[in-house]
Design a protein around this nucleic acid. Structure first.
Lengths: 175, 175
DNA sequence: CCTCTCAGTTCGGTGAACGAACCGAGACTA
DNA sequence: TAGTCTCGGTTCGTTCACCGAACTGAGAGG
């Protein structure tokens, strides 16, 4: 999107948000970051996104302060992409959108469920825990579980495999 | 987006949701529908969207069951586009996203605020009313108020003017 | 010196978005 | 009954983003 010329006429906060986050692939990259995906090659393998598009999205997200680049080894130099606080707040958008998609366009059972790590209860679409009454469970306290709807021939890339293998706390590195 | 070839590899509910709602302009059209915009020409005037793109988005949204077309007069035949229940549920996505954009990318004061119609309190980003404790205030119980951040030279199209003039209950026809 | 991995960049082809012009149905007008 | 207006689109040529495959360059390892 990169500045929809006409979004600027809408000086509405939604339009500004969409200029960043409404581009194709962007929200899936952010979702993967919640899953603990951190490196260029892992995003690439898990998303089947064109390399150039991924590079562009990562740069845009870093520039917008949604991801930050962090050098985790110097030889060879390797960077990882981590969610900032600003990025982490997008959980309140991603979870409702995913749940909405699941309610209305699911083909069978859900592929993944999100549970309150403290008590194991599945979160409601607004990230509340129905069991312990916790409102706004932050993503760091959420565990992603494999749901009952795993397809017959699931993806075999390392990220998909790791996500299926065991429950996984969001924001923690996956590999 | 129209079926990003590779989104299908992601048989994740978020990806499915984004196939519909993640296209350019789509979420702004839905937002306008919450504001009470119902007619082709009004969307057009308020959004500055290319005519062909608007026609395409409206058709896609109707096909997806997010909007429904309703003939409100027969001579000349005129249709309006109304949110279905499925579309109305997108409030739980639109409000958090707008609030996120406002928190992080606002230029000055907010342009619009959303208040619980029953008590006049501004909603939190998850559509809860801090005053009366109501969680999940539905969009039909929300009033859009003009915020303090109205620009010096605001838009003059009839929709923008009507939105500024007075508080307005969401989902109710604007004109 | 050769090869491998990782993280990109480059490039030609394709499809979507853009904006201006055009179109058709129906009312209104004189 | 011809002319004009409004509404809701469609058509069309240009521009731009996305796609996928090939290429590049830095550094490690053999």
């Amino acid at each position: 999107m990169a500045l929809g010329k006409n979004y600027e006429g809408q000086n509405c906060s939604l339009a500004r948000a969409l200029e960043l986050v409404g581009e194709r692939w962007t929200l899936l990259v952010v979702r993967d970051a919640f899953y603990g995906v951190r490196r260029y090659g892992d995003f690439l393998a898990h998303l089947d996104i064109p390399r150039a598009v991924l590079a562009d999205r990562l740069a845009t997200l870093v520039e917008a302060g949604i991801l930050q680049r962090h050098r985790y080894q110097s030889s060879p130099p390797r960077d990882e992409y981590l969610l900032t606080d600003r990025g982490t707040e997008l959980w309140s958008v991603i979870l409702p959108l995913a749940r909405w998609g699941e309610r209305h366009f699911a083909t069978g059972e859900p592929l993944r469920t999100f549970r309150h790590a403290a008590c194991g209860t599945e979160l409601d679409p607004a990230s509340r825990c129905p069991a312990c009454g916790h409102v706004d469970v932050p993503p760091g306290d959420v565990e992603a579980h494999t749901g009952p709807g795993v397809p017959a021939q699931p993806r075999q890339d390392p990220i998909s495999v790791a996500l299926r293998q065991r429950p996984h706390r969001l924001l923690q590195p996956l590999l």
